Simulated scan of single mutants.
Amino acid sequence: MCLAAGMAVMSVVALDAQEQVSQAPGAVLRGLDKINGVTSDIELAAGTTAAFGTLQITLDDCRYPVGNPAGNAYAALEISEMGQTGTLFSGWMVASAPALSAMDHPRYDVWVMSCTTS
């Protein structure tokens, strides 16, 4: 991540830190396979891992504004690729600003849509 993007994420987190949030039991992510143009919704419970193509996506946490589960979602994710060492992405994705903290992969895009409340 470049320095400017990192500072932008820190600014968003600093602004949103003033907002009261609730912890959700899960999240809905959306994945795009850029080769075939197919999108898939991925529903994950906190602490679980799902496969999307060759990716392994783990949801650590999902938070949303208190009293507004349909509002902005903040998801802590770890994404790795099968057969590769290390992680492709580790951090928070923000539903309202997916470009601020995006995973960089030549074939796949993943972003958070919302938190789940049940």
Rank of each mutant, 00 (worst) to 15 (best):
A17D: 07
Q18N: 07
Q18H: 14
Q20Y: 12
V21R: 12
S22V: 12
Q23G: 07
Q23I: 10
P25A: 08
P25Q: 05
P25R: 04
P25L: 10
G26V: 10
G26Q: 11
A27D: 03
A27F: 10
V28A: 06
L29M: 05
L29G: 00
R30E: 14
G31F: 09
G31C: 02
G31N: 11
G31L: 01
L32E: 06
L32A: 03
L32F: 06
L32I: 05
D33Q: 03
D33S: 02
K34L: 13
I35V: 15
G37T: 08
V38Q: 10
T39N: 08
S40A: 15
S40D: 12
D41I: 01
I42A: 07
I42K: 00
E43M: 13
L44A: 04
L44T: 03
L44D: 00
A46V: 04
T48M: 04
T48K: 14
T48Y: 13
T48P: 11
T49K: 15
T49H: 07
A51I: 05
A51E: 07
F52H: 07
F52C: 12
F52D: 04
T54S: 11
T54R: 07
T54P: 14
T54W: 08
T54D: 13
L55F: 10
Q56P: 12
I57Q: 00
I57P: 01
T58G: 04
L59V: 11
D60E: 09
D60K: 15
D60N: 14
D60C: 12
R63V: 11
R63Y: 11
Y64D: 15
P65R: 07
V66A: 14
V66Q: 03
V66M: 10
N68P: 03
N68R: 00
N68D: 15
P69G: 05
A70I: 10
G71D: 03
N72R: 08
N72T: 04
N72M: 07
N72Q: 00
A73T: 08
A76G: 10
L77T: 00
E78M: 11
E78W: 04
I79H: 01
I79M: 07
I79Q: 02
I79K: 02
S80E: 02
S80A: 12
M82Y: 05
M82G: 01
G83M: 06
Q84I: 04
T85N: 15
T85S: 11
T85L: 08
G86P: 08
T87I: 13
T87H: 05
